[in-house]
Design a protein around this nucleic acid. Structure first.
Lengths: 212, 212
DNA sequence: TAGATTGTTAATCGATTAACAATC
DNA sequence: TAGATTGTTAATCGATTAACAATC
């Protein structure tokens, strides 16, 4: 139950989704082999991943209890205690994120959104007010928000990032196509579409090459 | 100039953005150390990454020609030949992607979009028609499209995925929170928000722990 | 019991980093 | 020349996989 590699950490949400599916279809237990087959991983890898989060472990011959695993992963990933976040930049992408109800299941709640456009009557997809940027610092401090989501155009992303850090934000989830500069002690996760696409394109090239 | 690790591949788009910035501010050359500092990487890593794409390499004392590197990375990542893609699911997220002009710079052009809602007059953010799903297979085959982008709700994602594969799509960029099942020979890149968030949350937890 | 499955230890693989000679 | 910087070889580090004893 100690620290876990980045790779393991990124595989856990996938397992969780799959286990929930299995749970809904009424199955009680599952083997590492079955999970591995579903994802194209090796069974040993799945066992190692699960070993780092599972309290009771698996049983020879039957495998892992699905319900127990779901609870263990939920707990490990912190999905049981919801964290507040703010979002800056209520364009199409920002609205899409604001309207996405699934974040609650991932332990995240976007509690307020901000935009530079000063439309006093603007509301987000949930019908809540969209605030002016000038209100951000105060709100972040009052509610002790740690997480900021950036969905502004590239040219204002660094500025928004700096404002967030000044307001006390400690973790930034950046959907803007820029490489943000941040001081030590601030976490950044760039949702880098270009990097994803590069990976996909290379896979595609390999596949096409293989068919000739 | 041969094959390159996944990690290197994902760092290249970041370098490219930074080099373009530097280029616009009129600088002619840059050292691996300067790039490394900007990203928090080691200089050796940057040199190794660049060695795998740079035709002329760097020069002792001066570093790398920014213009030459930009061209090399553009070429390596295939940004000079645009690939066509289709998108299925024109909700908020789909619209955001359709309206994003930056994909052209990444060698991607979304040539058509589809949606299950049969609004005959619907148009995408560029003013182009949104087609009914029934038109997808024919269009994909006629235009020899290899890349499909999925931005539908979770419950229809697998179905859309299957239709894409049936139509001849070879690479799927999935923004829906599901683990798609695909046969061998099909590339999938899941844009897994939950996995990203897990990484960010862990970084945040480390930071908060560190401050106590 | 026999067989499926787990968990762990050791081997392998791949990526990063350290060390350093070459060069402008 | 001296110093900054490159590119490469060897060492280190971390993650995956192979092998296998333990167990229900």
């Amino acid at each position: 139950m100690e620290s876990v590699s980045k790779e393991t950490l990124q595989r856990l949400p996938g397992y969780l989704r799959y286990l929930k599916e299995m749970n809904e279809s009424g199955i009680k237990s599952i083997s590492s082999t079955a999970i591995a087959d579903r994802f194209g991983f090796s069974a040993v890898q799945v066992r190692k991943d699960l070993a780092s989060v599972s309290a009771e472990g698996g049983k020879p011959k039957t495998g892992f209890s699905i319900e127990a695993l779901i609870e263990d992963i939920n707990e490990f990933l912190g999905y049981n205690n919801v964290q507040g976040a703010i979002l800056v930049g209520v364009g199409k992408l920002g609205s899409a994120l604001l309207g996405y109800k699934g974040f609650r299941n991932y332990g995240l709640e976007i509690v307020a959104s901000f935009d530079a456009k000063k439309d006093i009557n603007a509301v987000d997809p949930m019908g809540r007010a969209i605030y002016d940027m000038s209100k951000m610092e105060d709100l972040v401090r009052r509610l002790c928000i740690n997480i900021g989501i950036i969905t502004v155009p590239a040219k204002s992303a660094q500025e928004v990032c700096d404002l967030m850090i000044k307001a006390g934000i400690k973790a930034i989830w950046n959907f803007s196509p820029v490489n943000l500069s941040v001081p030590n002690g601030i976490a950044v996760k760039n949702e880098d579409m270009a990097a994803s696409l590069a990976l996909l394109s290379q896979q595609l090239a390999d596949i096409i090459k293989g068919t000739h």
